[in-house]
Amino acid sequence: RELEKFANEFKVRRIKLGYTQTNVGEALAAVHGSEFSQTTICRFENLQLSFKNACKLKAILSKWLEEAE
């Protein structure tokens, strides 16, 4: 439930900031050390990743959002 809420909020905030899914994937290299594909970001936003992978990505995306805003 919390993950679903974060995924929805993330998408809204990403769009408000003017980032595409591809931009986010590339920008994550600075935060995490490796890029993520547009497909991975899309699957996260649509809750199509495994729970374990989504939880890992949530932590990375939270950190990125803090820096982007």
Rank of each mutant, 00 (worst) to 15 (best):
Lys56Pro: 05
Thr39Ala: 13
Gly25Phe: 09
Phe44Trp: 01
Ile60Val: 13
Gly18Glu: 00
Arg43Asn: 12
Leu65Glu: 03
Ser62Arg: 08
Ser34Lys: 14
Arg13His: 03
Thr40Lys: 03
Cys55Asp: 15
Ala30Cys: 12
Lys52Leu: 08
Lys58Gln: 13
Glu35His: 10
Thr20Leu: 04
Leu28Ile: 09
Arg13Ile: 00
Lys56Asn: 12
Ile41Gly: 00
Glu9Thr: 08
Glu66Gly: 08
Phe51Leu: 11
Glu35Met: 11
Glu45Val: 02
Gly18Tyr: 02
Asn23Tyr: 13
Lys58Glu: 03
Thr40Cys: 06
Arg13Ser: 01
Glu9Cys: 04
Ala27Glu: 15
Val24Ser: 04
Lys58Cys: 01
Asn8Asp: 06
Lys5Cys: 05
Thr22Pro: 06
Gly25Tyr: 14
Cys55Asn: 10
Ala59Arg: 13
Arg43His: 10
Arg1Lys: 15
Trp64Phe: 08
Gly25Glu: 07
Cys55Glu: 12
Leu49Phe: 11
Val31Asp: 07
Cys42Ser: 15
Glu67Ile: 00
Lys63Ala: 14
Lys16Ala: 12
Leu47Val: 01
Phe10Tyr: 06
Ala27Val: 05
Ser34Pro: 15
Asn23Val: 10
Cys55Met: 15
Ala59Trp: 05
Cys55Trp: 11
Tyr19Ile: 08
Gly18His: 03
Ser62His: 12
Lys11Met: 06
Asn46Gln: 10
Thr20Glu: 06
Gly33Ser: 03
Phe51His: 14
Phe6Asn: 01
Val31Ile: 14
Ala29Trp: 01
Leu47Met: 15
Ser50Trp: 12
Asn53Ser: 14
Ala54Leu: 13
Asn53Gly: 12
Gln21Gly: 00
Phe6Pro: 02
Phe44Ala: 00
Asn8Phe: 10
Leu17Ala: 08
Glu67Asp: 13
Ala27Ser: 12
Lys56Asp: 08
Ala27Thr: 11
Leu65Asn: 00
Ser34Cys: 07
Leu28Met: 02
Glu35Arg: 10
Gly33Trp: 05
Ser37Met: 02
Lys5Ala: 13
Arg1Asp: 11
Phe51Thr: 12
Phe44Tyr: 02
Thr20Lys: 01
Arg14Met: 05
Glu2Pro: 07
Ile15Trp: 01
Ser34Glu: 14
Phe6Ala: 04
Arg13Thr: 01
Ala27Cys: 09
Ile60Ala: 09
Arg43Tyr: 02
Lys63Ser: 12
Arg13Val: 04
Lys63Gly: 11
Cys55Gln: 15
Arg14Asn: 01
Gly25Val: 14
Leu57Trp: 05
Arg43Ala: 15
Glu45His: 00
Lys16Glu: 10
Ala29Tyr: 05
Asn46Cys: 03
Thr22Ile: 06
Glu67Thr: 08
Arg43Ser: 08
Glu26Val: 07
Glu35Ile: 09
Glu67His: 09
Ser62Ala: 13
Asn46Phe: 02
Glu2Phe: 00
Arg14Cys: 03
Leu28Asn: 02
Glu26Leu: 04
Thr40Phe: 01
Asn8Trp: 08
Glu2Gln: 06
Leu61Asp: 03
Gly33Ile: 00
Glu4Val: 12
Arg1Glu: 08
Glu66Asn: 08
Thr22Ala: 15
Thr40His: 08
Thr20Cys: 01
Trp64Asp: 05
Thr22Gly: 13
Lys11Glu: 03
Ile60Asn: 08
Ser37Glu: 06
Cys55Ala: 10
Ile60Gly: 07
Cys42Val: 09
Ser50Asp: 15
Gly33Thr: 01
Lys5His: 12
Ile15Pro: 00
Glu67Pro: 04
Cys42Gln: 15
Thr39Asn: 14
Ala54Gln: 07
Glu45Gly: 00
Glu66Lys: 09
Thr39Ile: 09
Thr22Lys: 15
Leu61Ile: 02
Val12Cys: 11
Asn23Cys: 11
Phe36Cys: 06
Arg14Val: 04
Gly18Cys: 04
Thr39Glu: 15
Leu65Ala: 03
Asn46Tyr: 04
Ala27Pro: 01
Phe6Ile: 00
Arg1Gly: 11
Ile15Ala: 11
Ala27Trp: 14
Gln21Trp: 05
Trp64Ile: 03
Gly25Ala: 15
Ser34Trp: 06
Glu69Asp: 09
Ser37Asp: 15
Ala68Tyr: 05
Lys56Arg: 13
Glu67Ala: 10
Asn8Met: 13
Ala68Ser: 06
Glu69Ser: 08
Ala68Cys: 03
Leu28Asp: 11
Asn23Phe: 15
Val31Cys: 10
Glu45Cys: 03
Gly18Trp: 02
Ala59Phe: 09
Thr39Phe: 06
Leu49Val: 09
Glu9Leu: 10
Phe36Thr: 06
Val24Gly: 03
Leu61Glu: 05
Lys52Val: 14
Ile41Val: 06
Phe44Leu: 03
Glu45Thr: 02
Ala7Thr: 08
Lys52Asn: 13
Ile41Cys: 07
Ile60Pro: 10
Glu35Tyr: 08
Asn8Thr: 13
Ser37Ala: 05
Lys5Asp: 14
Asn53Ala: 14
Cys55Tyr: 13
Ser50Ile: 08
Ile41Asn: 01
Val24His: 07
Leu47Trp: 03
Ala68His: 10
Arg43Ile: 01
Phe51Asn: 09
Trp64Cys: 11
Ile41Gln: 03
Ile15Asp: 01
Ser62Gly: 10
Leu65Val: 08
Ala68Arg: 10
Gly18Pro: 05
Leu17Met: 07
Leu28Cys: 01
Gln38Thr: 15
Tyr19Met: 15
Glu66Thr: 12
Thr39Met: 11
Lys16Val: 02
Asn53Tyr: 15
Lys63Asn: 08
Arg13Met: 06
Ser34Tyr: 08
Asn53Lys: 15
Glu26Ala: 09
Arg1Thr: 08
Ser50Thr: 10
Ser37Gly: 12
Ile15Ser: 09
Val24Cys: 09
Glu67Arg: 11
Gly25Cys: 13
Phe44Ile: 02
Lys58Ser: 05
Gln21His: 11
Glu35Gln: 13
Lys16Trp: 02
Lys11Arg: 13
Lys5Gln: 11
Phe10Cys: 01
Thr40Gly: 06
Phe44Cys: 01
Phe36His: 03
Ala7Arg: 04
Lys58Asp: 05
Arg14Lys: 05
Lys11Gln: 07
Lys52Asp: 14
Ala59Gly: 14
Gly18Ile: 04
Asn8Val: 10
Glu35Gly: 12
Val24Thr: 05
Gln21Glu: 06
Val12Phe: 09
Glu69Leu: 04
Asn8Ile: 14
Ala27Leu: 09
Arg1Met: 04
Leu61Met: 07
Ile60Lys: 10
Asn23His: 13
Cys42Ile: 06
Gln21Ala: 11
Lys52Phe: 08
Glu2Gly: 08
Glu67Phe: 07
Ala29Asn: 05
Gln21Cys: 11
Phe6Thr: 00
Leu57Asp: 04
Thr22Glu: 15
Glu4Gln: 10
Arg14Asp: 04
Thr22Arg: 15
Gly33Lys: 02
Lys52Pro: 12
Asn23Ile: 06
Gly33Arg: 02
Glu9Arg: 05
Glu4Thr: 10
Glu35Asp: 11
Ser62Gln: 14
Glu26Lys: 15
Thr22Met: 14
Ala54Arg: 00
Lys52Gly: 11
